[in-house]
Design a protein around this nucleic acid. Structure first.
Lengths: 189, 189
DNA sequence: AGGTGCATGTAATTTGTTACATGATTTG
DNA sequence: CAAATCATGTAACAAATTACATGCACCT
């Protein structure tokens, strides 16, 4: 689990924050590679404070609690960053769909891939803009590395999708295989 | 959630199976992009049967239940494959580590990236072997597309990691920033 | 016949999502 | 001051992981 480490890290990186500020900070940075919603962040902050990895330093406007990372929290974060790689979780819904896409009308599969390619293109554009921003501190350089990873991977995915569209177009001639013939109009299914 | 769809799909693709056979089939195919353990698969099969998306057709050796996909199940799978893309979940622990890697000794960060690059290299090798296998049916072609996605993305990640190693080497000269100075020997932390 | 591993499953726990409740602040 | 929206949180639920229990089947 890296939500806890992401939270400690953001506190270490950007100073004392309230839960709300952290959800915003998540959106702007870590959220590119780790999603988290308020409903998970608030309880996790309470648990982290219990565990002594973060500490409440004061209060914000409306009963808000400001937290900061403790030395123990930062030590734990450091330990986690360099610990042995756990067998990593792979969870890619898109590829599950593609794996079974031979079951649907090739035109629908193609449409799906086109929408996907569009999404990759616009995401790539966003990432490239961020990657072009000026970078100075070590923290910014580390952050830039994650953006660069996003750029390279998204580029690869886009090229893949464009290729896959061509491949699926070639399926157009044949009937889809397996199971019953797909409904031409899914609304009636 | 695509576990349920993965299970229906494997039953549709490879005929009636027991839970155990499905966990094996998972390992060989879908597992490359969607992890699932027996502890999740068995209960899910029971739920799918309840919902009428799969059906028990017979029994295997030791009280094992053989399932097959029903027409309803396949219809649901088709519907899901082409439905509008849900805002996709991003969850990449590696990048969380890299984002905060400026907190640790650059030598440790470099070591982490080197192990990562090694893992990518051997994974890439595996995928390239699979991609070179002979492909014939539509189902195999769809499967090949997912392997090709893996190859391209892993190649991009490997190139990224090799680049990132060079970048992190440049950090070596400077002190790590933020928080307290990292312990040189994490065992004493 | 007894030991080993195969195969199926359950239970407890953790993690993550969704929906909602509440009050505080700002804006018109 | 009323309406909108900001901000914090909880509760109910769903999904996923881990650890474990059980018993069959095969081999020697």
């Amino acid at each position: 689990m890296s939500l806890r480490h992401g939270l400690i890290g953001l506190l270490a990186r950007e100073g004392p924050q309230t839960g709300y500020q952290l959800t915003k900070a998540f959106d702007r940075s870590v959220n590119f590679f780790w999603n988290a919603l308020p409903g998970q962040i608030y309880p996790e902050l309470a648990r982290l404070a219990d565990a002594g990895l973060i500490r409440q330093t004061g209060s914000g406007p409306r009963g808000a609690k400001k937290y900061e990372a403790t030395a123990e929290g930062i030590a734990e974060l450091r330990r986690w960053i360099t610990e042995n790689e756990p067998t990593q979780v792979i969870r890619n819904e898109t590829l599950v769909r593609v794996f079974f896409s031979y079951l649907v009308d090739p035109a629908e599969a193609e449409g799906f891939l086109r929408r996907l390619a569009d999404a990759y293109r616009s995401y790539l554009f966003t990432l490239e803009e961020i990657a072009a921003e000026h970078v100075e501190t070590l923290a910014e350089r580390a952050s830039w590395l994650t953006v660069d990873a996003g750029v390279r991977v998204t580029r690869a995915r886009l090229e893949w999708a464009e290729n896959a569209i061509e491949e699926v177009r070639r399926w157009g001639a044949k009937r889809p295989q397996g199971g019953q013939a797909p409904a031409r109009n899914p609304r009636n299914a």
